[in-house]
Nucleic acid binder design. Structure first.
Length: 110
DNA sequence: CATCTGACGACCG
DNA sequence: GCGGTCGCCAGAT
């Protein structure tokens, strides 16, 4: 499991929606689960258009600490995501990958 | 090699 | 709903 796959999936998150570390871990079958996904996000390169702020904890909880925590809030708010407290309405803004990471392989045409 | 830590998550009291 | 514990794995020391 390369972190590249994780970043690629994160890039597919629609604007104004969010997903969780766990969802990503399950969709990509990441060994180590959500923890490693979070680890990957923590080291995600900047300036590559990776919407890391759209990745939240299970149930839509905001878990990133300062200084990125407030930044994430601001970014999501700018996309129209309402954040009452320390939590996002995941039922409303949640987005499920529901598909594995786009493989570079040629699509098998049967 | 031993330990600790962390942008997680499920459980439990 | 909140805080503590444990399992998980990759890096750092």
């Amino acid at each position: 499991m390369a972190w590249n796959e994780i970043y690629r999936l994160v890039k597919r998150i629609p604007r104004g929606r969010v997903t969780t570390y766990g969802e990503i871990a399950r969709a990509l079958r990441v060994r180590g689960g959500a923890r490693v996904v979070g680890y990957a996000m923590a080291g995600c390169p900047n300036g590559q258009g990776i919407p890391w702020h759209r990745v939240v904890g299970a149930g839509g909880r905001l878990i990133i600490r300062e200084p990125y925590g407030s930044l994430q809030r601001r970014m999501l708010g700018g996309e129209g995501v309402d954040i009452p407290g320390t939590r996002i309405n995941y039922k409303r803004y949640g987005w499920s990958p529901s598909r594995k990471a786009p493989t570079k392989k040629k699509p098998r045409r049967h």
